[in-house]
């Protein structure tokens, strides 16, 4: 690893956001490089100063009191059967719509997987991250970090940014044009995302590690978006978009048959 790569990875390492393999490689570099160690010490010094010396303002009692008052008032209203918290449905919808931008970024509803237990929870989290990543990308100015309709540009772009660059193929002739790629997060892992366009639909293909991957053929719906898992060459991948079922099935087949 050279100092340039190390300096890009250092903040991730420092913030506990770097995967284990890259962390080991970075540590090996740090063992032999005093300059990069200095950068790390600098980050740590700044953090220590911020945590020790910058003010973390505690909520004033006045604020807590106001909230408790609202809370009590609402509890009192709710107890009276004539004055419940109900609004006409349309009103709720309007309110929901007014917050849609925010929810696109943050909260996601994903139905539970069938599996119980920790493995199920972890996969739940994967689905949540994939939907959240997709929505965040849609809300951003551009859903990709590298714009290209050329598979020979997109693949090398990933190389050096992540451990395994995914297989990249364009399906413009079949109506699913490669539009670009980006790096997103699933859990704490940085994963490559291939972005395709089909008409006005944006399609994200999250290329996952074997461990993170939900079961093949699994289909999850959330707020009009669908996620489906396929094998992309030897790597599992999660497709997410708001396409219709027929189009999605075609795209799944295309991706699955690639190579």
């Amino acid at each position: 690893m050279d100092c340039k790569t190390a300096s890009e990875l250092l903040p991730l390492y420092f913030d506990g956001e770097l995967d284990r393999v890259s962390s080991r490689e970075l540590e090996a570099h740090l063992d032999g490089c005093a300059d990069c160690r200095d950068v790390l010490v600098g980050l740590d010094t700044l953090r220590t100063r911020l945590r020790d010396e910058a003010s973390r303002h505690a909520a004033p009692e006045l604020l807590r009191a106001r909230i408790r008052k609202d809370l009590a008032a609402r509890a009192a209203t709710a107890a009276t059967p004539t004055a419940t918290f109900r609004m006409p449905r349309a009103r709720w919808l309007a309110l929901a719509a007014s917050w849609v931008i925010m929810f696109a970024a943050g909260s996601v509803f994903v139905p539970a997987w069938n599996q119980a237990g920790a493995a199920g929870d972890a996969r739940d989290q994967v689905a949540r991250d994939v939907f959240a990543g997709h929505w965040r990308a849609l809300a951003a100015n551009s859903p990709y970090d590298v714009v290209s309709t050329d598979q020979h540009t997109v693949k090398p772009w990933f190389e050096g940014k992540i451990a395994v660059a995914p297989a990249v193929q364009d399906f413009a002739a079949q109506g699913f044009a490669l539009a670009g790629g980006r790096i997103d997060y699933v859990g704490s892992a940085r994963v490559p995302v291939l972005v395709y366009r089909h008409g006005h639909h944006v399609i994200d293909v999250f290329v996952l590690s074997q461990n993170d991957a939900p079961p093949q053929g699994k289909r999850i719906e959330s707020q009009g978006y669908v996620m489906e898992t396929v094998m992309l060459g030897s790597q599992p991948a999660a497709i997410v978009s708001d396409m219709g079922d027929v189009e999605l099935a075609r795209f799944v087949q295309l991706l699955g048959s690639a190579r």
Partner: peptide, 21 residues
């Protein structure tokens, strides 16, 4: 990040922007 100790993902959600930003 430094005072509230949120993860990159949480910060991206709060700020409504990509993690890269």
């Amino acid at each position: 990040r430094e005072i509230e100790e949120l993860s990159y993902r949480e910060i991206a959600d709060v700020l409504e922007m990509p993690i890269g930003t």
